[in-house]
Amino acid sequence: MWWPPFLYPPPASALVAGISAVQFVALAKLGLGELRGENMAYSKFWQVMAGKQQKSGGGGGAVLPSRSGMLVAYVPALVAAVASFAVPGAVEGVRAQLLSAAISGHFLKRVLEVMFIHQYSGSMALDGALTISICYVLMTTGMIYAQHLTSGLPDPPLDLLYPGVLVFAVGVAGNFYHHRLLSQLRTTKQGGGGGDKAYKIPTGGLFGLVTCPHYLFEIVGFFGFAMIAQTVHALAVAAGTAAYLAGRSCATRRWYESKFEDFPENIKALVPYVL
């Protein structure tokens, strides 16, 4: 039976196959939800959803300061990735070690950005933070376990390991650069308790072409994971992440259009000149 030369054969594991399918479908469904206005309750969209809940009389769930909520979302996945190095036999071989190191670096960057780069205001729903956290932990452990199951198998005929490391590095660098630009957009107006946060239209980098270049590079980073791993599971995670972030990018573009009457029509949501 023909099999793509850039992938390991799927493992004889119903668990991994099921997790791969569930994660892809769940992420794609979240992307469709974003297109329909069913936004995940974090970042600027938490304020939108909170306003909807107040008008409808709903809500009332526990909330955290936004920075704390994002740490709840990211730290467990970082711990899981780093801990894989301490589990005997979990990361055998250069490919598995590079994959776990890349995942660890990805979430370490996120944690450091939460602590030192991003500007936050308002709150985040605790259940939303926990949901995101669980998803990232399952994503992390799933990719590492699927890689473990390839131990002893010959590498795929088309070896993408080191190109994958390069693609991952480009994704991380581009994502960080545009996060840095975003962090400089929100200015504090003097006067009043704690200041008043205001949004601006992003500029610099690829912001002149797309609303969410940080999401574009996030997708590049996840396909870097897939190229390093060359497993069906990692590819399913990357494809699902791309579907989700495409939907979220479109939602973000609509949000900017609602806030700024002069938002440029030629700026796409995610991919320059295309989407």
Rank of each mutant, 00 (worst) to 15 (best):
W46G: 06
I19F: 14
P163Q: 09
V111H: 01
V172E: 12
R254F: 09
F263M: 06
F223T: 06
N175D: 02
S183R: 02
T211G: 03
A229K: 03
H214I: 02
I132A: 15
V220Q: 05
S183I: 06
A173Y: 11
Q119A: 13
L153Q: 15
V172W: 11
G205S: 15
V167E: 05
G208Y: 13
S68F: 13
Y215S: 03
Y74F: 12
Q230K: 01
G122H: 13
L35N: 07
A239V: 13
F222W: 15
V172K: 10
P11I: 09
T252F: 04
A238L: 03
E257N: 08
A12P: 06
G247E: 08
P88V: 02
A83F: 07
M49D: 10
L153A: 09
Q97F: 00
L112F: 10
G221A: 15
L166R: 02
G59C: 03
L149E: 05
C250L: 10
H214Y: 08
S121F: 14
L161R: 13
P4D: 04
P157C: 00
L64Q: 11
A12R: 14
G193W: 11
G240A: 12
V91A: 15
A80K: 11
Q53K: 11
A96H: 05
A169Q: 07
R254T: 11
G142V: 02
G192F: 15
S133H: 08
W2E: 12
L126T: 12
A234C: 10
G33V: 05
F260G: 01
R67I: 04
Q23F: 15
H148F: 14
F24N: 01
V72D: 07
L35K: 09
A73S: 08
V79D: 01
P272T: 03
P9F: 08
T187D: 14
F107N: 02
H214R: 13
A21H: 05
